[in-house]
Design a protein around this nucleic acid. Structure first.
Lengths: 160, 160
DNA sequence: GTACTTTTACTCGGATACCGTCTGTCCGAGTAATTATGG
DNA sequence: CCATAATTACTCGGACAGACGGTATCCGAGTAAAAGTAC
């Protein structure tokens, strides 16, 4: 049981996009290059983020991706859910309930506990936003490195 | 990302074993039959539980499995960890930290949050024990069904 | 009846096959900006 | 110079190959009780 690496990559992609000026977009290929991921696969992740209403995509020449909402409103959980899907971590088979002769469908000996555990896992991911991680970056990233990245992005980005 | 079905099956196997009288054991095949699982695979799960010090195994004729400790001391988390392993749900690649020029190894923008989320998930599983689930069974299971199961177990079990 | 051997019924643990999921690649289609072309 | 066509550079989404992990099966080895055998 391990989280898809796509979740981490997606979070980082969203973080990269926070450095974009208003109305700018970044091509998917540039983003995947920066994260060291394979472009053709990364496009699929980006499209999932578009489907989840986290990104806006602009087709055509000078097209690319941009955040749909402001970083303060994008929770880490939203990205997690967009990539991992909405299915819960635990699915009861109901075998044991059958064995015990428990008729009531609402009673599942384990899933109540599992559901509660998953909710407290998720609530932690709902607390943090892309913006709060971005603030961590500003605290820990060397300023010259940040300006270098910023200029690289402005060079590669496309206004429209 | 989904929990192994082996975790659920293992929890139920442990629950079955709580119905065993002192010094009795149940063969692995009987347990797997009751849970509707394939015997050859289920043996592997049981052995994992033995390795994790949750079960005691008795080899030879009249051999089988029995709980090592009392149900009050066995947490759901112990079973989860025995089957799923100790690896955490999230493993940082460090790619983004490299991109940001963050040298300090201790700083990982995402893993702090992920670690915290996983801990609150685990703490829920640590709270509940096999015994507390067993009490739920007594509340929700028809009494006649319980006595039927109890007598089946005492018929199939082996004293030594 | 006792000592020894064989059979039986389990666990143990490694080798291996199957299958679903995640990762990764490829390609045709759609879209829009840019460039080329024809009058 | 303007309108139209072709090219270019992206996204879109489906099809598909490969890798990996979880599930499942099998088998030989170890172990201990029971049954059989010899004296």
């Amino acid at each position: 049981m391990q989280m898809k690496t796509g979740v981490e990559q997606s979070v980082y992609a969203m973080l990269l996009l926070t450095f974009l000026p208003e109305k700018g977009v970044l091509p998917g290929e540039f983003i995947s290059q920066q994260l060291g991921a394979s472009p053709s696969y990364f496009q699929k992740l980006l499209r999932k983020l578009v489907s989840a209403d986290l990104l806006i995509s602009v087709p055509g020449a000078k097209g690319g991706f941009r955040l749909k909402a402001s970083p303060e409103t994008i929770r880490v959980f939203d990205i997690y859910e967009a990539i991992e899907g909405k299915q819960s971590l635990y699915a009861s088979s109901g075998v044991f309930e059958d064995l015990m002769g428990i008729q009531n469908q609402n009673i599942c000996l384990l899933s109540d506990l599992m559901t509660e555990a998953e909710q407290s896992w998720q609530s932690t991911l709902k607390r943090e936003t892309i913006d709060s991680i971005r603030r961590e970056i500003y605290l820990n990233c060397p300023p010259d490195h940040l300006t270098k990245l910023q200029s690289l992005i402005e060079e590669k980005m496309i206004r429209n």
